[in-house]
């Protein structure tokens, strides 16, 4: 299981890469593995305000569906359109392909997320 060090993680298997006031958001290797072949990604709308833990999109595989919850509160400023045509990118490289970029409203939310070490332990407990 690939869990990069510099990212922060949620218990719903999203990651966020924080760069100043912006956060790139995606799903983890664990998530893509358990969903199987991803067939569709419903992206959030640019300009949408999301709270931490709020639904911001949907990821579908053939036999499963998962809600994408925002790891932190903020405003969506960019979405990865490439996923509309090629959802399989999330299977191929879940950390190389972000889903949305959020302008963070506060850094407080980030304190509640897991580090790579914590997330590794969290996943180990699940299987």
């Amino acid at each position: 299981m690939n869990i990069p060090k510099k990212l922060l993680y949620t218990s719903e298997h999203e990651w966020i890469k924080v760069d100043g006031e912006r956060g790139h958001i995606g799903i983890t290797d664990y998530a893509q593995h358990h969903l199987g072949d991803i067939v569709f990604v419903e992206l959030p709308e640019i300009g949408e305000e999301v709270a931490m833990g709020e639904s911001m999109g949907v990821i579908e595989s053939v036999k499963a569906v998962a809600t994408l919850f925002s790891p932190a509160g903020g405003r969506v400023i960019e979405v990865n359109d490439e996923l509309e045509e090629a959802p399989e990118l999330l299977n191929e490289d879940p950390y190389g392909n972000w889903i949305a970029i959020v302008e963070l409203s506060t850094s407080d939310d980030l304190d509640k997320l897991m580090s790579a070490e914590e997330y590794t332990a969290f996943c180990a407990n699940l299987d």
Binding site: V39, F40, E60, S61, V62, K63, A64, V65
Partner: peptide, 12 residues
Amino acid sequence: LQAREQHIRREK
């Protein structure tokens, strides 16, 4: 497109 349907999405 079965991911739309009740047997997968249940209450959603």
